[in-house]
Amino acid sequence: MSIPSKAERALLSHDELKAVAATHHPAIYDLDRSELRDLQKQLRSERGKARTLARQKRREVRGKSDARGKSFPGTAEQPLKRKQVFANALKRVNREIERLETVEARTAHVEAAHRALAKLRAAKFASPPSDKTASQGMQLRESTKRRQTLPRSKVGSVLKANNVAQAIRDARPN
């Protein structure tokens, strides 16, 4: 459930309100990643304090524990709402950090794809070396063997001769 900014001003102190206000729509885009990380740590600690206070108040109401300290500050009347304000602000910061990481990953992937495409295009249009030169490593040499072609009329007789020779070998005693 979202909490209006006016209610946030009523629930938080000036310093806390400054931190939470930095997480709202136009202001959050001005922060870089390190500032967002610092703000995330601060909001987590504030949320933890508010959570602890809310749990303590709940225990006091149920009669499970005594009141802690002499008295709580004036902002402790609604500890659950305060915790909710910090939790919502933390969610906004986490989403913004995730969005920044996604954008960075996407740009990295696009750049890698562009580099791969450039390499592929360069490889397609590369001309082979014109002649054999020294210090170029192993070079492909054209085969000097002539390809033997068998006339079609002989193919069948050669196969038949192989079959006969195999049959003779198979017929021998071991």
Rank of each mutant, 00 (worst) to 15 (best):
P79K: 10
R121H: 09
K119S: 05
I3E: 00
K145R: 10
A161K: 13
Y29A: 11
A126Q: 09
S71K: 15
E98G: 02
N174Q: 12
D32M: 02
R95Q: 14
K41D: 11
M1G: 15
V110C: 04
L43C: 07
R152C: 07
E46D: 11
E96N: 04
R37F: 05
R169M: 05
K119H: 05
S135L: 12
Q148L: 15
I168H: 00
V61P: 00
G63Y: 09
N162A: 10
S45E: 12
D38Q: 13
A134Q: 06
T52A: 15
R95C: 04
F125I: 11
G63L: 13
Q136L: 06
A67W: 03
L17C: 04
L43P: 11
N94E: 14
L12T: 05
R47C: 05
T75N: 08
H109R: 15
Q84G: 01
R152L: 13
V155T: 14
G156D: 06
V93D: 04
H14R: 07
D15K: 08
Q166L: 13
R121D: 12
E111I: 02
K18L: 10
A118C: 01
A134H: 03
V85R: 05
A116E: 15
G74P: 07
R146A: 08
L150A: 03
N162L: 10
Q78G: 03
E8V: 08
R44V: 07
K83R: 15
K70T: 10
S135V: 02
V155L: 12
A118K: 07
K6N: 08
R58Y: 12
V158F: 11
E35K: 14
I3S: 02
R152Y: 01
N174G: 10
E46F: 12
D30R: 10
L12Q: 06
A19T: 07
K83V: 03
P26C: 02
S143C: 13
Q42A: 13
A10C: 04
D15M: 07
R141H: 07
R33V: 12
L11W: 03
G156M: 08
I97R: 04
K18N: 09
T102W: 09
V20H: 11
G48A: 14
Q40L: 05
E101N: 14
S45N: 10
N94G: 04
R58Q: 09
S127R: 12
T149I: 11
Q84W: 04
T133W: 09
A87G: 06
R55C: 02
Q136V: 08
K64W: 05
D66C: 01
P173G: 03
A171C: 04
R47P: 01
A134Y: 03
A10V: 02
A171F: 09
E142T: 10
R169S: 06
L120D: 14
T52M: 09
K81H: 04
N88P: 02
V61N: 01
R47M: 13
A161N: 08
G137P: 06
A122Q: 13
K6C: 01
E142V: 08
L39K: 10
I28E: 10
G48Q: 13
L11P: 05
